[in-house]
């Protein structure tokens, strides 16, 4: 169970005199059950990449395998792929359209041709997964708060029982409270279901505490692909491409430069605090 991207390239406006390489020879393996952060600034190709994962966009060259099957084969079932690889777009609340929350979440599973009972069960489960209480089920989605709307929209994709969940900038425009709630929810969801999750973001800070692996994209290419602490070691290079390592990385390096021997690989505040206390004791 995995997604393999083999030399995938995508070119916009290929027939004009100004072709734009949105993806440039991308090789990537997404293993079953992984929690991946896909990082890049606007225009780095990350949104284009995720639209390839469920076949919404077709690579100009290269192949994508889902569970060993080539998704560009003529007889490959694209519709099924789209249900297996659930893609949540940026500002997903902008696609809500039904009269009430529950019916909206039913839209996806209904399109898969499931019977009513299964559709409703899946919708119910999905709403519970994202933490929407029963009292909201028959409200208009447009009456909810921003954070709630977004969770309903995510439930709309979860209800299709995807094996892989891809979220494009899920926290964009949310306030810190909404952001933390949502990221915690996603993390919890992954723990309980074992689903593969790809979190697309332009903020290292947001994803550092959650994911096991970080893929950094720049100019349509994969720049780094490693565990967070290894990726953050390249904080100077990241800075050059308009990204930043978490603040903690900078603080630890500053302390190190000032002569306090601390491990600069830590990524969370807690680890950093422990590390500094240890180093301070060592000096005395």
């Amino acid at each position: 169970m995995s997604i393999i991207l083999d030399h995938v390239s995508y070119v916009y406006d290929a027939d004009t005199n100004m072709p734009v390489k949105a993806l440039d020879d991308v090789n990537l393996v997404i293993n079953d059950g992984e929690f991946i952060g896909l990082i890049g600034h606007t225009g780095s190709g990350k949104s284009t990449l995720v639209q390839h994962l469920n076949g919404l966009m077709k690579a100009t060259s290269g192949t994508i395998y889902y569970n060993g099957e080539d998704i560009y084969d003529n007889d490959y079932n694209k519709k099924e792929l789209r249900s297996k690889v659930g893609l949540v777009f940026q500002y997903p609340e902008h696609q809500l359209f039904e009269v009430d929350v529950f019916t909206d979440v039913c839209f996806g599973p209904k399109n898969l041709g499931w019977d009513d009972k299964k559709v409703q069960l899946k919708a119910y489960e999905a709403l519970k997964m994202v933490g929407i209480e029963d009292e909201y089920f028959y409200q208009s989605p447009f009456d909810l708060s921003g954070g709630q709307k977004r969770r309903v929209a995510i439930a709309g994709v979860l209800a299709m029982s995807p094996e892989v969940l891809v979220l494009d900038e899920p926290t964009a425009g949310l306030d810190p409270k909404g952001r933390d709630e949502l990221l915690n929810k996603i993390s919890e969801l992954r723990r309980t279901t074992g689903m593969t999750v790809v979190l697309v973001s332009h903020s290292m800070e947001d994803v550092a505490n959650y994911v096991d692996r970080i893929v950094v994209m720049n100019k349509g290419r994969i720049m780094y692909d490693d565990v967070p602490s290894e990726v953050f070691k390249n904080y100077k290079e990241l800075e050059e491409v308009g990204l930043a390592a978490p603040q903690v990385t900078y603080i630890m390096h500053a302390l190190n430069d000032a002569g306090l021997k601390v491990d600069c690989d830590v990524t969370t505040i807690n680890e950093a605090a422990n590390e500094i206390v240890k180093a301070l004791k060592g000096r005395k």
Partner: peptide
């Protein structure tokens, strides 16, 4: 929006006139 709804299994391309017109609701409302 069209892409987002396709990702949710919406089908804008097949079916008769009425089915297609109905399929536009998830696009037009948002």
């Amino acid at each position: 929006i069209m892409k987002a709804q396709i990702a949710r299994g919406a089908d804008f391309e097949t079916g008769g006139l009425i089915k297609r017109a109905k399929a536009l609701i998830p696009l037009l409302v948002p």
